[in-house]
Design a protein around this nucleic acid. Structure first.
Lengths: 342, 342
DNA sequence: GTCAATCTGATTGACGTACCTCAAAAAATC
DNA sequence: GATTTTTTGAGGTACGTCAATCAGATTGAC
């Protein structure tokens, strides 16, 4: 005997198909007592509704929108690339994905873009944006319209988002710290922290984690105040050069953000005989190359493919209001060395 | 307009539904010319067959069998646990999974178990076992009967397996080496390698990778010949004690296998004032605890949840003969420190 | 006991595909 | 040109569920 169907439930509960249907889909017009009878039959038979048949019957479409920053940036590029892949392959699961690019660092534009989403045309939205009042309001509106919302990469904790898909950046910072500390040749060392403000919250959390872990585990390592390059190669070169001039003993560089091109270029001339440990975030093509070339020693990253797929799965689960498989959706903090490059 | 259906194809190709059906399902009785016409219509319309509707119509069931070693061992336990989860949640995707436990290290029993699988009742098999002639023959039989076969955790490269789901153990060994080397406080060091023969091939490959990377990157570190504990706590204690007596300078221990309980117990008494770097494989509950307690410095592992889900997805894809999303199915070599414990 | 409101049953037609049959048309063979 | 073979068409049923209708039954209020 195959899996039990609605027919079997109807039979064992002693009701008609129509009633079973009403119960299953929480439609009105069934007495409490009858509902209970049907529920009992369902559990006793171990019935699980055939979602694909159901979706077929109701011509269900999952329409999701991903709101991503538009600006240049290899990390966002890898995410967009992963999203393209997922978009193509999830076509067959009745899932259609649209991508909305908004200028980064422009909360108003982000909020406007979200507002422009035709609520009746969309079941779920994934948002990668810094948390600002404008964005918060926009998310509230989405949520109140019954649209599922997940925060991507950077959490939006004080909004009505349903879920956060991304890594815990504090732990990522701690991880970076431990690698930085253990990779140092000497106990005493000076480490430079470079910020490139992508998503403010992420950088701050990483920095906090980094400092905390450093202090706990490597009290002899001196972490310098962070310097910022503001995505400008020339400025970055100046800032880095200045830092190395002031602190000739620097033996480690930790890059908080993901815009690493300028930083890597700026560091290169500073490498003297001594070994310099470089730790950064996000496995972009550039960082991959840097690992291979030995320019960077470790990259803390998150699997963007997993990230995007997880976001889609979570959105879908929210729409079906199904359970989320926590262990599957937890994004791991990946440590990538040259040796375990994926 | 929605997605094109078979009807649309029939219309634009100027043939009947039956013919489209014959073409789609590669049934005989259609002229080459007509097939071409239908194919043209399919591509021009961008038709993608609705798999869930198709599966519904053909009452398709994916019946998979996982052949796993039975013996004790926390690593296999975690796999079984992950498999239980997947089994439960994939019920709704027409996927039913049975687990077959066979005594580990018994190639004949493994082969017998595989032979006992009723070929007509199964679409795919995932096997975690060492490669032996008996197993190879059994897999050949499966393959010839049209059953999809994937090797799990440990590859079976010279068999007719369709796919391997697991990490590249050589790279895992290299990764372990680099961590071991960089975590050492001094350049000169002695490292003990401990084997616990789980799946022979894996250990050998890890060892090869470990040695190679050590030699390349840390020529000053002396890697001792590996010692074996044979899963026997007392023996392990003796062997370890002996090693530390002979080489008092040991400052690193690398455990190749996954049976780490006995090893950890054996190491504890040997810890003197000097720092001892311990690197092992597989994030079992015991290893997790050891990381938290600082008994172990790094664990090279693979995400067992991902592993099992990937195996299922691959088996399903083979059955549908659909494309495999390589990037999704590549199992990463995870480096786990205390700081990035998932 | 009547009436209305509330439940329930029976039935039907989708959804997109698979698979089957039977007959008609076209092509190949002689 | 007649015969056989191959190809195609038309149509139906089924899969498990949803959604809708309409008629019938039960309930509760008065």
């Amino acid at each position: 005997m195959g899996k039990p169907t609605v027919r079997d439930i109807a039979r064992t509960a002693g009701v008609s198909l129509a009633t079973v249907d009403r119960v299953l889909n929480a439609r009105p017009g069934v007495r409490e007592k009858t509902i209970a009878r049907v529920q009992a039959a369902i559990t006793s038979l171990g019935y699980v509704r055939d979602l694909s048949a159901a979706n077929l019957a109701r011509k269900r479409q999952y329409r999701f929108v991903f709101v991503l920053p538009e600006g240049p940036g290899q990390f966002v590029d890898t995410i967009r690339e992963a999203l393209r892949e997922v978009t193509a392959s999830s076509h067959s699961d009745r899932i259609s994905i649209n991508t909305l690019l908004v200028p980064s660092h422009d909360p108003h534009a982000t909020a406007r873009a979200i507002h422009r989403i035709r609520l009746s045309d969309v079941e779920g939205v994934a948002i990668m944006a810094p948390e600002t009042p404008q964005v918060r309001d926009a998310i509230t509106q989405l949520h109140d319209a019954g649209v599922a919302v997940v925060a991507l990469v950077s959490d939006l904790p004080s909004t009505k988002r349903d879920h956060f898909v991304g890594i815990e950046n504090r732990a990522a910072g701690r991880t970076a710290a431990v690698l930085m500390g253990r990779f140092q040749a000497r106990q005493k060392a000076e480490v430079l922290v470079v910020a490139s403000s992508m998503l403010a919250r992420d950088s701050i959390e990483r920095r906090l984690g980094f400092d905390a872990a450093m202090q706990e585990t490597f009290p002899d390592i001196h972490v310098l105040p962070s310097v910022e390059g503001h995505d400008d190669p020339e400025r970055m070169a100046d800032v880095i050069a200045a830092a190395f001039r002031t602190h000739p003993g620097i033996s480690g560089v930790y890059s908080l953000g993901s815009g690493n091109q300028a930083l890597l270029d700026a560091i290169r001339p500073q490498r003297s005989g001594g070994s310099l440990v470089v730790v950064g975030h996000e496995l972009t093509p550039r960082m991959r190359q840097a690992l291979v070339d030995g320019e960077v020693d470790a990259v803390i990253t998150q699997n963007v493919g997993h990230l995007v797929r997880s976001a889609v799965r979570v959105l879908k689960a929210k729409c079906d209001d199904a359970e989320i498989v926590e262990s599957q959706e937890r994004i791991r903090i990946d440590i990538v060395l040259r040796e375990n490059l994926p």
